[in-house]
Structure formats: C-alpha cells, structure tokens
Design a protein around this nucleic acid. Structure first.
Length: 584
RNA sequence: GGCCCCGUAGCUCAAUCGGAUAGAGCACGGGAUUUCUAAUCCCGCGGUUGCAGGUUCGAAUCCUGCCGGGGUCGCCA
C-alpha cells in the first residue's frame, strides 16, 4: 500500500489495536533533515516514560519498507528502501487515477459552490478573477477527493446599480449598442454606468455648493431620484423598463460569457436575483408570521440579532422593496430545494462581506433552516493596488479582459519566433493565464493581495510558467524515450537511490495528503505550493542526473520517476485550472 | 467608538492548526550548457517574526495589553 492515505490509515488502525495513547502526526521530513517521513512522537513520550527509542519502535512496528529510522528528540525520521520506492512507482503506473491523483475520501459529500456572482452593471475586474480562480480550483479540489460539485453562479441582475447604468444609457448613449460601437457588451454597459456616476457626482457637488450636507445631496440629486423611480418601475413590471433592462443584461451576459469561456469555466446552474428576490420576501413574511421578525412603524421589517451580537438588520424597506440580504434568504432556500442532497453550500465571496454572511447564517438559524450549518463562507481578501483599494471613480480598477490581454502579449515576447503564428498565440495564452492564475492562487485566500501593475506579473521564479516548464520538459523527455523504444516499465530494483531522486520521490509520495489538505481547508494555495516544490525537485533531478543515458535498471527507474512526476503534476495543473502548452 | 481580519528578509509571500537551525521567489553579487528544452540549476547576501509581558519540554503560531494597517457596523448589491 504505497500511497500516503492508505499507509496512514493502516498504521493508525494498527496503533489503535495496540492502544497507543495518541496518533503521532506524520509529515514530510524537512529538506534539511535526513529522511522522508517524520513521525512526531512528542505526545507519546509521557506514556513511554521519556523513552523515545521505545516509543519509536512501537510506532514503526506496522510500517513497511523502512530503510533507516533516526530518533531526534521527539522526531522519528524514516527513510524508505529502494524496493519500497520501486513498488510506489509501480503503483502509480497501475492505479494512479483511482488511488493517487483521484481519491474517494470525501465520497458522499455533495457541494454547491457559488461564484463569482457578479453585478450586471460593470465588466469583470481583477477581484472577480481571484474569485473565479479560487472558486474553480475549490470545485476541482473537491471533485478530486471524491465529492460531487455543483458550480452555481448567482447573477445580481437587479437593484439600484442596474437602474443607474440604464439611466446612463438613456441619457448619454442611446441609441448606441455594443454592435454599433464595436464594444464588448459588458464594457459597453460599464461605460453607461460610469457616465451616470460622473453626472451624478456633478449634481451632488452642485448641491453641496448650495450648502447641502453630503448625505442630503446624495439622496436629493435628481439623477438619484430618477434611478430610484426606475427601480420602482422595474419592480412594478413596467414594460418599457423591463425591456431595456433585459436588453442591457443580455449585452452584459454575452461579455461575461466570453471571459468565462476564455478561462475555461462553465456553470451547472445560474440563479438570477431578479427571480429569487421574491422568494426572499416570502421568507421574510414567514418570519413575520412566526414572530421571528418585526415591523417598524414606518412599515420596514427588521430582525433583532442583538442576542447573537449582530445588532438589528433591516429585511424590507418601508416601501416594501427588498434589500440584498432578502434575496439571499430566498436563494439559500432555493438551492436546497433544487438540490436536496447537498451536504455543503459554499459561498465564494470577498471578506468585505464577512458580516453579511454572518447575518445570513444567523437569520437562517432563527428560521430553523437545518442547512444553516451547511453553509461555508469561503472568504477571500481583496486585491489591492500599491496605492490602496481599486476605485471605479478614480479609474484604478484593473479590468479582467485587459489584464488577460496584457499577460498574453507579455508571454508572447518569450515564445520562440520560428513557430507558426497560431501556435505562438496558443502558447502565449497558456503561459499568460498560468502566470496570472497562479499569482492569484498561490497566496492564502484570506489574505489581501497587493497587485503592482507597474511590475505586473513575473514569468520566472515562483510562478505558473515555472510549473508549466517542468512538466513540458518531462513530457518531451518521455516522448524522446518512446522514440528510442524506451519505456517506463520497471526493471530490477536499483541498488541505491540518489539524494535528488529521493527528494523527488518524497514529494510525489505526499500528493494525496496535499490534495486532501487543500480541499478540506478550501485552500488551493496549499496545492500551489506543493506543485512548486514538486517542480523544483524535478528540475534538480533533471539537471543533475541523466535519464536516457543511464544504465539499467536505473534508466527505467528514472523514466518511471519522470512519468510519476508527469502524472502528479498534470493532476496539480488540472486541479488549479492552469493550462499547459504542448511546448514552450 | 463596537466587532472581524492582518502585521514575518528591501519587495511579494511560506512555515503542513504549538515542533527541529523561521523557508522560497523577486532584486543584488558570483558560477554552470561537447549530455534528455538555461522560462532551468548551483553558491552568496539578506531576520530581535510590529512592541511588551504571560502560558510550557517548545511560541511567528495560544492568552493579555499597547502600536500600526485594512474591512465592517438599521434601508448599495
């Protein structure tokens, strides 16, 4: 049983049978220490009266293939025999997809992952890209460990922000369309929104000149009043308003769809807020009837969550219209009606909405929805510029499509010039995307990212192209071997394992654990770091040891090692949704 | 002001939920190609983990206080 999760499970049951007080933690041995696996036996020392040797002996009893075990303080560093590694490589060849790169440990889990849930008044920006990369990677991670996943996108297609872009079009752009202007639909609508905002700001400034305080000015500006009227007309179902709304959303969807397609992302289910917000109102009515919520004198409806430390929250405005959280309540219900077998409902949403998500869960608990506990908010940090937050008003928002284009052309400069033009662009797209996506995935999701447009994104070092390059080289090596009639079929066991080989084997051995850890913590960065380290070790191996030129049985062992690396790395790249070019 | 998150090399980030001498990349300096792709590899430089206490075999990690940054807090989504 040469795979991590199978080994560990077998060892643990053996220890349990022997009544060991606590399972030692098992990790890959740090690079500066001798060994492959480290068993942390500090917690066992008391039971063995400080006799580390005795504790180590008990722990290692069920472990097969041990070549050397060294006890250092509370650590037992173990390395494996060449025969063990040979059987490991054999197992990778024979059952990689079912036991190594795809696991069944979370079988029975059924997730819905909601992302990126954009508004329909602006094109996608860098923050959405982080959301998309994270959401997609999390879906693929959970699929890899045996779960079923529904990718859901909730489109925020109604609300005051849409009214604003509609007004922007009416006043400054009509009758132009994306077709007549040659613009991508989402960008076209974004321009309408910006035009509205600019005019609106001017009105607010004028009112402030006349002595109105800012808060008053913001509400009293004629354009804002008009936008609100438009929202009411929309809710009342006024036909002309609906027609324009539908038209503008169509433009936006076409634009979004193009970007999603470029990123290789498709959704199983799309929810539209315009269809779910009424469900939310029903949920609020239910809460009112059951006395869980209350109505103020002005007609607005509230929930009192002070006991939960969340204060009071408005659920319906005094004019009866719904707010953001209202539709979220309805959508939460709908998700579990559509997919009753869900075990988890994941929301990939920025950490600026931590409070909002806490409110949502608290309200669902109040309503005694059992699935309130199944909700998981994958809260991620913002992408900031060195100068601070991206701001529409200051024109510092980094547009997703523009950035993808820029990455493409930066990568193109590095591609060999004597290749056909279409292939050069194919490679450039793969390299540019991998650079960008890896950059967004390599950091802890909870942390903010500082994106420096001046320095932009590296193509060397701890990057996506670094990972691609290692894999491309390995593939070419195996192709060359095949041309010479050499296969990775294992021959006799080599007498000894070189240090560079052992370091690579160690990392390969850790793949199942890395996949599990990344999925369970909803953290693709763990797998990104794993993949980087794996590539480093392969590069070192590749650089220092000959493969095709080696003597048997070392040659076939190294070919098998290269093949195992290819299998593991392809799994990493696929899971993180990083494209790999045929060559580079 | 209340609540939440964060502070690690010049910069961008790690450190496998309390473990070994805190590690990578970028930048900077030096080196490697008659051999499977040099987008690579090797060597060097770089740290009082914001500050001060506490908890214990052991703290970047946990607790308390302070300093600094960000987010959020009854009708934007």
């Amino acid at each position: 049983m040469p795979f991590w999760h199978e080994d560990v499970a077998a060892w643990e049951s053996a220890w349990q049978a022997k009544g060991l007080p606590a399972f030692p933690r098992i990790t890959l041995t740090p690079a500066d220490q001798q060994g492959v696996l480290t068993f942390n036996i500090f917690p066992l020392l008391k039971a063995f009266r400080g006799d580390a040797q005795a504790a180590a002996k008990a722990v290692l009893e069920p472990v097969e293939g041990v070549q050397r075990a060294e006890v250092v303080k509370g650590f037992v560093n173990v390395s494996f025999s060449p025969a063990f590694w040979r059987s490991f490589l054999q197992a990778v060849q024979e059952r990689a997809p079912s036991g190594y790169t795809r696991l069944q440990l979370e079988r029975g889990q059924h997730l819905m992952v909601e992302y990126p849930s954009p508004n329909t008044n602006k094109p996608l920006h860098l923050g959405h890209l982080r959301n998309l990369c994270l959401g997609e990677a999390v879906c693929r991670l959970w699929e890899r460990v045996g779960a079923r996943v529904v990718r859901a996108n909730l489109v925020n297609d109604r609300g005051i922000h849409i009214s604003k872009s509609m007004l922007g079009w009416k006043k400054f752009f009509a009758p132009a369309t994306p077709q007549t202007t040659g613009k991508k639909g989402d960008h076209f609508v974004g321009d309408c929104y910006v035009a509205f905002e600019r005019a609106y700001r001017a009105e607010v400034e004028a009112l402030k000149q006349r002595g109105l305080p800012e808060e008053e000015a913001l509400v009293q500006a004629p354009l804002f009043q008009e936008a609100q009227a438009l929202l009411r007309a929309w809710e009342a179902g006024e036909p002309q308003t609906l027609a324009l709304w539908r038209q503008m959303n169509e433009w936006v969807y076409e634009g979004f769809e193009a970007t999603f397609r470029r990123l290789g992302i498709r959704f199983d289910k799309v929810y539209y807020e315009s269809e779910t917000y009424k469900l939310g109102k029903k949920v609020v009515e239910e809460g009112l009837k059951r006395g869980l919520f209350y109505r103020e004198e002005d007609g607005s409806v509230w929930a009192d969550l002070t006991a939960e430390g969340l204060g009071k929250k408005i659920l319906l405005r005094r004019d009866g219209t719904s707010v953001y959280i209202t539709q979220d309540l309805g959508t939460a219900d709908l998700k579990f009606q559509d997919y009753p077998e869900l075990t988890r409902s994941v929301y990939v949403i920025g950490n600026e909405q931590d409070h909002h998500m806490r409110l949502l869960v608290a309200l669902l608990r109040k309503l005694e929805r059992p699935y309130a506990e199944a909700i998981y908010h994958l809260s991620y940090g913002m992408v900031e510029l060195p100068t601070g937050r991206m701001k529409t008003r200051e024109g510092t928002v980094v547009d997703a499509d523009d950035l993808l284009d820029e990455m493409h052309s930066r990568a193109l400069e590095l591609v060999e010039e004597d290749l056909p033009e279409s292939e050069r662009h194919e490679i450039a797209e793969a390299v540019g995307q991998a650079a960008l996506r890896f950059y967004l995935l390599r950091v802890d999701p909870t942390k903010n990212i500082v994106f420096d447009p001046a320095e932009s994104i590296e193509l060397k070092g701890f990057t996506g192209p670094f990972l691609q390059y290692g894999l491309v080289r390995a593939r070419r090596l195996l192709e060359k071997a095949a041309e010479k009639g050499l296969t990775p079929a294992l021959q006799a066991t080599p007498d000894a394992i070189e240090p560079a080989e052992e370091k690579l084997l160690q990392q390969l051995y850790g793949l199942p654990e890395a996949l599990m850890a990344a999925a369970r913590s909803f953290d693709p960065a763990l797998l990104a770091h794993y993949g980087y380290e794996l590539t480093r070790r392969y590069n070192e191996f590749y650089q220092s040891l000959p493969v095709l030129g080696a003597e048997e049985p070392v040659r076939s062992f190294r070919l098998a090692l290269t093949q195992a690396y290819q299998i593991a790395m392809e799994a990493v790249m696929e899971t993180l949704a990083l494209p790999v070019p045929a060559r580079m």
